[in-house]
Design a protein around this nucleic acid. Structure first.
Lengths: 171, 171
DNA sequence: GGAAATCTACTCGGATACCGCGTGTCCGAGTTATGGTGG
DNA sequence: CCACCATAACTCGGACACGCGGTATCCGAGTAGATTTCC
C-alpha cells in the first residue's frame, strides 16, 4: 500500500481530461474513458467537490466542472482533497516512555517536538513543496504533448457523442 | 497508517541510545529502555543487521553494535532497512486504459514514465533527500542536548547495571 | 398549445464486503559465555 | 587443576493472530432537465 493512494491517481487522471474539455463531464464518462471503477470515482469526485476543486451540477445533463482554472489547481490540492491531510509519520512519543522516567517524564523530555518527529516533518514539507510545484495545467499539457494532434479531437468527440447519444441508446 | 512505520520510529529511538553507549547492548535492554515491544524490536534489529547498519554478536553477553560511526548512518538508511524501499506511489498505468485505445494502447501512450508518476517520483526524491541530510549522530546530539548533563550518565549506568546484574538476579 | 405528470440521467451519501499489510506475540533453533561437576 | 557438561542469555527466523484502512461495489434518496400526457 503506497502513501499516495490509487484514489489520487484515478482522480488526477480524470481531472486531466476534465481540464481538457471546457464543457464539463459526468463521472461515468470520465471514469469509463480512463478505465477506472465508476462508483469509486463518484466517491472521489464528491470529495473533490467538498474541497472546492470541482463544482457539481445535479440532475440530468449534470456533471462536474473545474471550480477554477487548471493552472491554479496543484497536485497537492488533489492529494489533500482525496487522501485527506494524511501525515507521513505519526509520532508515538516514545521519548516519554524511557525506563528512567518510570512513567512520569520530566518536562524537558516532552517539551517541543520530538527530534525524530521534526526530521520527518521536514521530509514531509519537502515532498509537499514538490507536489505544489505542479498544476493540473502543466500535467495536462505534458500528457497531450506526447500524443498526436488528432488524439485531443478524438477525446472531445468521444465526450460529446456520449453526451448527445445517451438518450438515443435506450430507444 | 502512516508512510513511515512505527517500526522505523522504534528502530531510530533504539539506535539513538545505541549510538550513545559505545559498548553495544542487547535488544531487550534497548527496547525496555524505550518502552517498546521487545519481540517486535528484535525483528527490526535483524533487518538493521541485514542492511549493514548494526552488527550482531550471538550468545550470552551478545547484542548489537553500530556497524559504522553514527555520523555515517542517515535516517534514510534506517527507513530503507526497516520499511524496505517502499514507494510513495505505485503507478497502475491508467494511461493505457483509455477507452479510445480499446485494449491496445499505441506505443506513444506507454512510452517513458507516466506524467503523473513522474511528479510523484520527484516528490519522493525530495523527501529522501531531506531524510538523507540527517545522521544518527546529529539526532543523538540534539536529543541529549535537551536533557540535563546527568541524564546521559544515568543512561549508561542503567545499561551497565542491567548487563552485570543479569545473572545475579536469578540466583 | 400549454400545464402537469412522468421519466431519465445525473449527484450525493451511507452501508458493506474484501483483502493486504502493519503491528505485535509466540515459539523453536542455533550460538556462546559462565558456572558447576568429576576425574 | 583441568576437561567436560549443563545452563542461561542471547540472536535468528518463521508462523500466526489481530485490526485498521484502502479499494470496490451496491443501493436508496434527492434533483433537474426532457418527454409524454392530458385538458
Amino acid at each position: 500500500m503506497s502513501f499516495i493512494s490509487a484514489g489520487v491517481e484515478y482522480g488526477l487522471h480524470c481531472l486531466l481530461y476534465l481540464a481538457g474539455t471546457t464543457a464539463g463531464a459526468s463521472v461515468r464518462d470520465l471514469s469509463e474513458m480512463q478505465g477506472v471503477p465508476v462508483d469509486y470515482a463518484a466517491k472521489l469526485f464528491t470529495r473533490l467537490a467538498k474541497a472546492g476543486i470541482v463544482e457539481s451540477k445535479e440532475g440530468v445533463r449534470g456533471g462536474f466542472v473545474l471550480a477554477r482554472p487548471a493552472a491554479e489547481i496543484t497536485v497537492q490540492d488533489v492529494v489533500d482533497a482525496i487522501d485527506g491531510a494524511k501525515r507521513v509519520f505519526d509520532c508515538r512519543e516514545v521519548r516519554a516512555q524511557c525506563a528512567l522516567f518510570d512513567g512520569e517524564p520530566p518536562a524537558w523530555a516532552t517539551r517541543g517536538t520530538c527530534s525524530i518527529h521534526a526530521v520527518m516533518e521536514a521530509a514531509e514539507r519537502a515532498m509537499r513543496a514538490e507536489l505544489q510545484k505542479h498544476s493540473l495545467a502543466d500535467l495536462a499539457a505534458r500528457v497531450f504533448s506526447k500524443a498526436p494532434a488528432s488524439y485531443k479531437h478524438q477525446v472531445i468527440n468521444w465526450f460529446t457523442d456520449r453526451a448527445t447519444n445517451r438518450r438515443s441508446d435506450r430507444l
